[in-house]
Amino acid sequence: MQNPSLDEIRDILKKSKRIAVVGLSNNPERESYQVSQAMQNAGYEIIPVNPMIDEALGVKAVSSLKEIEGHVDIVNVFRRSEHLLDVAKEFLEIDADVFWAQLGCVNEEAYQLLKEKGYPVIMDMCIKVAHALTK
């Protein structure tokens, strides 16, 4: 598994506007909330994807990627590594641009599935840190 270069990640973040966050918590203490809030504050539209909550960061949550209307640039995943393959399969159903698994999240099977279909895949990297590094 190999992530894109920092230059490629910079390009991804520059052209992206909408980030669907799978596993976004509505608890301000959680990493998913803090990272997504930082990205929202940086100008990205955040779409919470979590069947257990009604809203997060002032945005109504959806229970699955398939419920999102319109195009999604990045699917940012805050789920344990063993769930990444299921999220990757759903990702393929909505034709988003980039699959991004947060720091500590790696699944080789999900990586191979998405790379074989030609999608950019980033794993085990915090999108907030990457955004700060590529400014």
Rank of each mutant, 00 (worst) to 15 (best):
A56D: 02
E90P: 01
K128S: 13
K60A: 09
T134R: 03
I47C: 05
A101K: 01
H83T: 10
H71Y: 15
S25R: 07
K15A: 07
K60T: 10
I53E: 06
G23F: 04
I47W: 01
Q40M: 11
I53T: 03
I19H: 00
S64P: 01
P28M: 06
V62S: 07
M125K: 13
D124A: 04
A38Y: 13
A56E: 02
E109V: 10
A96Q: 09
K89R: 10
D86L: 11
E69A: 13
K17L: 09
Y33S: 07
S64I: 01
K117N: 13
T134F: 10
V62Y: 13
I127G: 02
L85R: 09
A101P: 00
I68H: 15
L113D: 02
G43R: 10
A42I: 01
V98K: 07
G43Y: 13
K15V: 07
E45M: 05
I53V: 02
I94A: 10
K60R: 14
L65F: 15
Y44K: 01
V75K: 09
N3Q: 06
M39V: 05
Q2C: 04
V35C: 06
L6K: 07
M1G: 06
L65A: 13
N27W: 04
S81P: 05
R10V: 03
E108S: 13
A96W: 08
G43I: 04
Q112L: 11
M123N: 03
V106G: 07
E29L: 09
I19D: 00
N107M: 04
Q2D: 10
E108W: 05
V77Y: 09
E55N: 10
N27G: 06
D86G: 15
E93H: 06
A132Y: 10
V21N: 03
I12N: 09
Y33G: 07
K128E: 12
V98I: 11
D86K: 14
V87F: 02
K14H: 11
A101I: 00
D95F: 04
N50C: 05
V121D: 05
G58Y: 12
D54I: 01
E82W: 11
C105Q: 14
Q102W: 09
M52G: 08
L6H: 08
N41Q: 14
K128A: 14
Y111R: 06
P48Y: 08
I12Y: 15
Y111H: 12
H83L: 15
A61Y: 02
E116Y: 07
S36L: 13
G70Y: 14
N76D: 15
S5C: 09
L65G: 13
L65H: 10
S63V: 00
D86A: 14
A20Y: 02
L65D: 09
R80M: 14
K66T: 14
I47L: 12
L133F: 12
A56V: 00
E67I: 01
A96S: 14
L24I: 07
K17T: 12
Q40Y: 04
I47R: 05
G104I: 06
S64G: 08
I9L: 14
F78W: 12
V35S: 05
L84V: 02
I127S: 11
K115L: 11
I122F: 06
L113Y: 04
